[in-house]
């Protein structure tokens, strides 16, 4: 019986590995192509391990060439980090307010926040664009950061966790004369730290990968983020596929690293949000 079990499991694992190949192969092809000289990219049968290496030239051209990736990288890091921090601050404040403070109109205001969540972002890009023009936020990183920071999602997600805090714990602090700000900073935030980490990682990934907002709200090449950068690169450098692949590898790599390091938080966050719905 046990032996049969082991055989069955091994078979299933092999089967899954084959299914997994469908998911890994495009990535492997991308990495391999980014290491090759241009003429070898489409060679068939595919040279998974390149016969001729061109790795240094490819990546140098991408990083400091005509469309310098270091500029796009710096822009993306800046926008993603600031968006994540601001979003984390305001979302957790609002979440704490909606879960642990009692004030007039709380439920009505929460319904308003809920409703903004249902509006598809593409339904409001035109007026957002106009407002940004009027406020001189168009073609600036500040505008992009603000768009990413104010999303109802973080408020919902974190509110769930603040609701899970023990009321007695917070009341005890109040009896000791602590103000709400102090309770928030000293007690509530430290208690939901894992949830904050999850949200921060997700927000960072979403901002890093965001394509539509930089496309619409930025114009200058010097402000472009990576997603805009690789698309420009791909459409303007014509048939230099090895270079384009070096660009996509550069765009994806940091996220894979963050994901592998924080996979527990990411997977738990997705699972939790999903199951709770």
């Amino acid at each position: 019986m046990r032996k049969q079990n082991i055989i069955g499991r091994t078979m299933a694992t092999i089967l899954m590995l084959m299914a997994g190949m469908a998911f890994v192969t495009p990535f492997l092809w991308m990495i391999s192509a980014s290491f090759k000289p241009e003429i070898d990219v489409f060679k068939y049968p595919i040279e998974w391990i390149p016969k001729h290496w061109n790795i240094v030239d490819n990546y140098r051209e991408v990083w400091v060439g005509e469309h310098p990736f270091y500029v796009y990288y710096w822009n993306t890091v800046k926008v993603s980090v600031l968006t994540t921090l601001i979003s984390l601050l305001f979302s957790s404040m609002a979440a704490f307010g909606f879960s642990n403070l009692e004030f007039k109109g709380r439920n009505a205001l929460f319904v308003v926040v809920l409703m903004t969540f249902m509006i598809p972002s593409y339904s409001i890009i035109v007026p957002q664009f106009m407002i940004f023009k009027w406020l001189h936020l168009f073609d600036s990183h500040l505008g992009l950061i603000l768009i990413g920071s104010f999303s109802a999602l973080g408020t919902f997600m974190l509110r769930q966790f603040f609701l899970g805090l023990h009321k007695d714990y917070l009341d005890a602090a109040k009896m000791d004369g602590a103000g709400n700000a102090r309770i928030f900073v000293r007690i509530a935030v430290p208690l939901v730290r894992p949830a904050l980490a999850t949200y921060a990682i997700l927000r960072f990934i979403w901002t890093w990968n965001d394509y539509a907002n930089p496309l619409i709200f930025l114009r200058s090449d010097s402000l472009a983020t990576i997603q805009i950068g690789i698309q420009k690169f791909a459409s303007e450098s014509g048939a230099y596929y090895s270079l384009i692949m070096a660009g996509t590898v550069s765009a994806i790599l940091p996220l894979i690293v963050i994901f592998v390091l924080g996979q527990k938080q990411v997977i738990e966050g997705i699972a939790l949000g999903g199951v709770k719905g």
């Binding site: 990968n209 394509y211 698309q231 994806i252 894979i256």
Partner: peptide, 14 residues
């Protein structure tokens, strides 16, 4: 989960 993490721009180009 890797495709979900990767940017859609990069995936589309590949």
């Amino acid at each position: 989960f890797m495709p979900y993490i990767s940017s859609i721009v990069a995936v589309a180009i590949v």
